[in-house]
Every structure is written in C-alpha cells, then in structure tokens.
Design a protein around this nucleic acid. Sequence first.
DNA 1: GTCTATAGTGGGATAGAC
DNA 2: GTCTATCCCACTATAGAC
Lengths: 233, 233
Amino acid sequence: MRAPTERQSASETRDRILDAAEALFVEHGFEATTMRMITSRADANIAAVNYHFGSKDALIQEVFKRRLTELNRRRLAALDRQEAEAGGAPLKPSRIVEAFFGTALEMAADTAHGGHTFMRLLGRTYTEPNGFVRQFLAEEYAEAVERFLAALYRALPDVPREEILWRFHFMMGAMSYAIAGTDALQLFAGKFDDAAPERLLPRLMSFLLGGLRAPLPGQGVPGENGRGAPTRQ
Amino acid sequence: MRAPTERQSASETRDRILDAAEALFVEHGFEATTMRMITSRADANIAAVNYHFGSKDALIQEVFKRRLTELNRRRLAALDRQEAEAGGAPLKPSRIVEAFFGTALEMAADTAHGGHTFMRLLGRTYTEPNGFVRQFLAEEYAEAVERFLAALYRALPDVPREEILWRFHFMMGAMSYAIAGTDALQLFAGKFDDAAPERLLPRLMSFLLGGLRAPLPGQGVPGENGRGAPTRQ
DNA sequence: GTCTATAGTGGGATAGAC
DNA sequence: GTCTATCCCACTATAGAC
C-alpha cells in the first residue's frame, strides 16, 4: 500500500475534479472553462475527466446533481417539518418562503462544503441558455417546485395562482442576485461594506415576504380585494 | 450606382451584424456564439466582423453600448421629469422604482427595436463572470445608479442606506428574471398561460414596491421603527 | 487508475485579390 | 467594403504504454 499523502485515492480524485470544476464554472462559465484548467486545478491528469465522467458535459451534470439533489431534499424536509407542525392547516407564507429560500441561503452560507460556490452557479444557470443543463434542472426541480407552489396556493387562497407563480419567479430572481451577492453589488456601488453573510438571510426574507404579500396589481388599497377574483379553493 | 435591393449599404451591414450578434448572444451566450454563426445570420462575410469591429470582444462591447446608453438616458430623463414635478420634495418610492425598472420593462416590450432581446441579455450579464463586459457595464451604469440611489435615500430617510442598497440589488434580480420571463418560468411550471407582456409591468411593480417597503429585518411590526437606526440626513 | 502523446475538430483572425 | 482561402491556435477526446 502506498502512502496516501503523495497521491490521493481514486474516489478523492473524482471529488477533487468536481470541486475544481464547480469553482471554475462559477469563475469563468461553462464554455470558458477547459478540461486543462479543471484537471490542473484538481491536480489530476488531463485524461482523468474522461475516465471518470466520460465527457465534459457529463461532468457538468454531475457537478449539479451532487448538490442539487441534496438541496431539494433539505427543502422538502423543511416543508414536511412545517406541515407536520401545522397539522393540516395552511402554512404561513413566511414558513414556506423560509423553507425554500432560507434553505438555499443556508446551503450557500456553508462555505466549507462548497455551498456558496455552487449556489452562485445555480442562480446563474437558470437564466443561462445551456440546453441540456436547463433540461436537467427542470427535472431535478419538478417535485420540489410542485410541492412548494401547492403550499403557497393553500396559504394564499385569495391570490390568483398566476400571480403567485410570477411572484415565486421574482423571488427566485431576488435570491439569485442575493447569492451572487457582493460581487455584483460592488459593480455599481463601491461604498459597500456590510456584506455580513449572517445578515443576508433576514434581509432577503423581509424583501421576499414584502413582495409576496404586496397588494395585487390594480388594487390601490392593501387588504381590500377588489378585482383579481380569488381562484377556487 | 448599384441597386440597393441586392446588397445593403455598409452601415446596414454593421447594424445587421449587431442585431445578429445580440440575438445569438441571448440564445447561446457569448462563448458559444461563433463569428461564423453571427456573420451567416447577418448575411455578411466572415471577415466583416473584424473589418467593422476589430475583434469579437469589441463586437460584444458594441452590442451593449448601442442599447445601454439609450436605456440609461431614458431612465435619467424619467427621473428628471419626476423631480421637476416634485419641485424639490423627495419623490415617492413608487415613482423612482417606475422610472428605473419601468423604463427597462418598456424597452423590453419594444420588440420592434430588439429591446426584448437585449434586456434579456443584459439581465443575464450582471451575474455572468465575463471580465471585460462587467467592467464595461459598471462604467455605463455608474451615473444612473448613483442618481437613483440618491433619490431612494431621500425618499426613505428612515431606512439604513445599506438596506436600500441591498433591496435595490434584490429588485434588479427580480427584474432580471421578469424579463428572462416565460422561458425560465416554464422550466418549472408548464401550466403557465398568462404571459401577457402588458401585465408584466404592474405585476413586477407591485412586487418590487412590496419588497422595497417591507418592514426592516428584526422588526416584527410594520410601520414601527425600533432598531435599525435611521442613517443621518 | 494514471499518464503521454496525438488525432481530429472548430475556433478567431488575417492576407490579399477584387 | 467585400470576399476567399488559409494560418495558427486551443480545445475535447482517445489510443495505448505503464
């Protein structure tokens, strides 16, 4: 048996490649990241990616699958917990929003496990036009989105479902930028010093809930439901 | 003189290249879009890009400059108009938000002039890691962001400036997704049929204002200013 | 499972005729 | 200002030795 200090085991090589790829994809994007960059950063051979993953595209998919499955597992677990506590009653919107977006930010705060890196990548990828990655995201997300939307529909029975759908979409955008975070912010505001990550979650939550519960368009007075007929149930 | 039907004039070739590049960048991203794709779509020769712009990177910059200058010109004009009407008094947040984000959505609705295509590209590019494009965006945006932030600081004197900065950032995210729009939405919600663009603006505005005016984090009760000390002025 | 060497492809850019 | 032909380079992927 060889000393494990010099060369790590095979499975570790695989993980190092995934970590390196993840970081480089964030930094440079998918296309601009080359196999040579990945393998050199992972301290592996140029042929290792093809050996372990088969192709660059397959590697990209693995980078996502590794974290996304876990993220949505946690999200659904958080939702389950809330629903168990509520015992059949509709949840408060704030609980639902926290289970979905709070879990994501939690994972983004977990720098030790590459959470931050990945969440930035994920946020960016939604709006990116990369065919097979989007297809893949859609599949991985289907179940979670389904359940969270259903919870929101129950929580806000007076709000038209399409309005909720759009607001969910807007919230995703806000979250994406929240995680992309300081980098993008400094782009137009150098004088920015309070980037404390532990304050990000409450900041984002206030904003999201304010947006989610805002008066419907075409209604001047909050609380009063004029047009915008409630959907059934 | 030649018949102008067969081959368009030189300046038109330049514009066709810009249009083609813009559309292809949205569809495939910067890296994945090749010179050959651009020139063939623009019905121009492969050498034309280098003749007119010097390089692919310079072309990318031109694609942005062409529309961004106009967008921010309109935004500042809208702000000027509001400030003239207010005659020295602080503006209502809704007016400021509309001047900034409404103008962008207006431009996005202007499909005839490639507005929609460009706004999608712009929204995506914020979070993209393309070095020289970001640098460039920062410069083009500096003046407009400066003035709009100042207006928001005046409009919301009790809200800490950093909070406003973050919320402005979140609003940018929501807008970006709003414009990316249906494409991304359908990714996780097939049953989505009300994509009427004329309804997008009021939808987004309600959401943004709800978020902007949400109670500050750490304050349970809206309207009551406990912690989160007002910044000076 | 790791490596070197290389095949094969497609990119951006340009020289030079028209 | 437009075009063809081509150069040169960097990339992914693989064959085959170890």
